[in-house]
Computed example of a mutant assay.
Amino acid sequence: MEGKGAGDGAKIAEGGCSEVFVWEDADKIIKLAKPNTDDEAMRREYRNTLAAWECGIPVPRPYEWLQVEGRAGIVFERIHGETLAARFMKQLQQPFVDTSELEGEDIRLTARILHAIHSQSAPTHPLSSQKESFKQNIRYTSHLTSKEKKGVMAALDRLPAKHVLCHGDPNPGNIMVRDDGSSVILDWMNATVGNPEGDLAEYIIMIRYAVLPEDLPSELRKSFTAFREAVIDTFMDEYTRLSGLTYEEVYPWIMPVAARKLSADAISEEEKGQLVSFIQQNL
């Protein structure tokens, strides 16, 4: 189906793989692929979001997949609210912020949302295998040698396999809190059927290694660096309380998930360098 031009609606967001525009009215948006994202990836996101919607998970309602001016796109329900990442950055930039106050409800909310997702059995719509998806990403990266890739994939093969719905990219920028206080999780392009430990490792890596924007005051970036492990502890404390799954059980997944992230366009070379060092130390 051919749609109207993206220029007909205001651009309201942009990520590593897509741009988001208002669509038709205030209640819909369209997410359009950038050149680094192919049609099949957008079709997969549409199918995955539809599967999550049909499971009753709080996601933006997916209306249709279409083509706009040669670009693949998905029409979604528009969510009015704020991402957890935006809330965090606002708080971090307040004068005289005490970084110990950043630990709290938003971190625990992320753990609760992920536990709700992981409590679902595999949806009736077929989703990719988590381990196979990870292997495909690992093969693609140019940051590891062939020997290192084989070592990481061998470690991945030794890990137990589960069969639950996993989000694949549970970062605070993908969790929105609506104006009414309810939460919604976005961006299901990387959703798979597999192990909750993979999602938890993804979150831990992001907190532990994320490179904060250079325009933040250096003292705040240094202060957050000292606070990273407290965020991880709070997150895992809440997830363990809900599920019984511990950090020790998640830890073996951190290396293969770190290797998988090396193929991502959205993270910096500085962050990728830290991930490569971690992987090499653990092989």
Rank of each mutant, 00 (worst) to 15 (best):
V22S: 12
P160H: 01
V276L: 03
K135S: 15
V59F: 07
N282A: 12
N174G: 01
L275Q: 04
E69R: 01
T83M: 01
I232D: 06
R112P: 11
L242Y: 10
R241V: 10
I175N: 04
V250K: 00
Q93F: 05
A155P: 00
P160V: 03
V231R: 15
A10T: 05
R228F: 10
D187Q: 00
V97I: 15
G3K: 07
S128L: 13
S268I: 05
C17M: 00
T124I: 01
F76E: 02
A191K: 09
A41Q: 06
M176I: 00
E202P: 00
K147V: 08
E105H: 08
E40R: 10
L144P: 00
E197D: 05
P170F: 10
Y46C: 02
E269L: 05
E229C: 07
L165K: 01
C17D: 10
E103Y: 10
I204E: 06
Q120F: 15
I207Q: 11
A266K: 11
Y140K: 13
M236S: 00
R71A: 07
M236T: 02
K11R: 15
P58D: 06
I74D: 08
I138K: 09
R44T: 15
I185H: 02
N282E: 06
E219I: 12
P95D: 06
I107A: 08
A6T: 07
Y251F: 13
I185N: 03
D233E: 15
F76H: 07
I185K: 00
L220V: 09
K261Y: 08
T37P: 02
P35T: 01
N282I: 00
M206R: 11
A264R: 14
M1L: 13
R71P: 05
D233R: 14
V22C: 10
G168C: 12
V250T: 06
A210F: 15
G181R: 04
L32D: 03
I117A: 01
H115Q: 07
P170I: 11
I57T: 05
M1N: 09
Q274M: 15
I267L: 11
L212F: 15
K31H: 13
R47C: 04
T234D: 10
Q94R: 14
S129H: 14
L92A: 11
